[in-house]
Design a protein around this nucleic acid. Structure first.
Length: 427
RNA sequence: GGCCCUAUCGUCUAACGGUUAGGACAUCGGCUUUUCAAGCCGGUAAUUCGGGUUCGAUUCCCGGUAGGGUCACCA
């Protein structure tokens, strides 16, 4: 489907995963879309027909459903081959008389057990129950995945097939088909599934899993996402956890891929994302953070304050919504008694605020920096019975919030005039 | 139900049969100039159960249990 292709391509590109050939860039084995390879699948279907290893399904869908239900009722696995007709009709690939195309089924040449090797799981095997006469070509003339990928493996010279664990049970079918076509199978590497957070079901949209591009929109870094994903079911064998793409490529070893499903974990993802954010330059930080800020908050000095408090860009939205940054450009409103520190008194607080105002007035406007403010205020604070008695009311008068950055940096950002104004009002 | 896969802290995981069972996230506590955040230090926390094999099993074998996958004209 056209939309799905774009979506897959966009997701891979965001993650920084590149490929050498494919539907959007062409290559040696083009075309890449099934719809453009139908003749090829038909050619291989004919080879199987000629060998007597493929036949048109004589039943209607309803009839097959009945077989299936019956098997289910008898608590037996449904095997189409138990209903395989004794004589095969001729398969009419393009019904001319307005008839409906019959699906073409593979006739499994030999019902047997299969053993094979998997690069991750090692030796695997399955009983004959895993083999069945599956559909090669559907009634819409398209091949099924089971058939298409095998033709493609042969035609495109595929050497390694890496895919999810859900395919293990179909491998005997594939092996049987490779055999029927006299093709040496590629190497298989089976990867464990990713399970949903909290639950123990395979991660899926139905159970609330998010589209990968939603993480992009939420402001996760692609390298962090790749890093997180890589660690789900694989480890480097040492204690390293933070990797760039290049480091990941160097460190990766398929023998260290795990065999069991790993749960998605947003907490860990956030931590990894933050670790990758720490590697960004101040310019990159500013650029990304400013994108989320309104004009009046695009202040250079606010960047580290925000950076400390977020683990992904979209966290800034939450800070904005909760009004945690309002005081930088709006006079705060608060109840007077909030200025009081623990069991101090309003008189004491007022006294301390006056001391602070006097001291701050001594600083020249151009020297009104975090460091100078801190020096002066800490002198007062250290003389007091408790530092909080001095610092808390200042911080509260400036921010109007229970939780905020420290008063020194707020004062610097507000500037001398606004700082003194707010402190005066608190008296 | 058949076939198949898997099993170490809550989560992701490490440990050529011999370790005080290690790390990370989360959590809890402390420190760091008032709160928050960040940072630093520390704590709690695991080998699913039962049998073997072995001088010795997290590790090898068998069985139970639990979880997962699959049994489509989807991939």
């Amino acid at each position: 489907m056209a939309g799905s292709i774009d979506h897959i391509i966009e997701s891979l590109k965001w993650l920084g995963i590149n490929w050498d050939e494919g539907p959007n860039i062409g290559g040696l084995h083009a075309p890449y879309l099934q719809s453009e390879r139908l003749d090829l699948y038909k050619k291989y279907a004919q080879i199987l027909i000629d060998k007597g290893l493929a036949y048109p399904d004589p039943y209607t869908e309803e009839e097959v459903d009945e077989f299936r239900e019956k098997a289910e009722l008898e608590k037996k696995p449904f095997l189409f081959r138990e209903h395989r007709p004794e004589k095969f009709d001729i398969w009419d690939a393009c019904p001319s008389s307005g008839g409906v195309l019959k699906p073409l089924r593979f006739k499994v040449p030999e019902i047997k057990s299969f053993k094979w090797n998997d690069l991750v799981y090692g030796d695997l095997s399955a009983g004959p129950e895993a083999l069945d006469d599956f559909i090669l070509i559907k009634s819409d003339s398209y091949p099924t995945y089971n058939f298409a990928h095998i033709v493609d493996d042969i035609e495109m010279g595929v050497t390694h097939v890496m895919r999810g664990q859900e395919f293990i049970s179909s491998v005997p079918k594939f092996l049987s088909l490779y055999e029927a076509l006299d093709f040496k199978p590629p190497l298989f590497a089976t990867l464990p599934p990713i399970m949903g957070e909290g639950g123990n079901k395979k991660l899926s949209k139905r159970d609330g899993a998010k589209d990968i591009l939603e993480y992009k929109n939420e402001g996760y870094l692609p390298e962090a996402m790749i890093n997180f994903l890589a660690l789900l079911g694989w480890n480097p064998g040492d204690d390293r956890e933070i990797f760039t793409m290049d480091e990941l490529i160097k460190a990766f070893d398929i023998s260290r891929v795990g065999h069991s499903g790993a749960q998605w974990n947003d907490d860990k993802l956030d931590w990894i994302n933050k670790e990758h954010m720490k590697k960004l330059s101040i310019e990159e930080l500013r650029k990304n953070i400013f994108e989320y800020l309104p004009e009046e908050l695009k202040i250079e000095k606010i960047v580290p304050i925000i950076f400390e408090r977020i683990s992904k860009w979209s966290d800034i939205k939450g800070m904005l919504e909760r009004g945690e940054l309002d005081f930088f450009y709006k006079e705060p409103k608060y109840a007077k008694e909030k200025l009081v520190f623990k069991n101090s008194s309003i008189e004491k607080i007022t006294e301390n605020l006056k001391l602070a105002i006097n001291a701050l007035q001594e600083i020249k406007e151009k020297d009104f920096t975090n460091e100078n403010i801190k020096n002066i205020l800490m002198q007062i604070a250290n003389k007091s019975e408790s530092r909080g008695e001095v610092l808390h009311p200042i911080r509260y008068a400036l921010s109007g919030l229970d939780k905020s950055p420290d008063p020194f940096i707020i004062a610097e950002i507000l500037g001398k005039n606004e700082t003194l104004l707010r402190l005066q009002k608190a008296i």
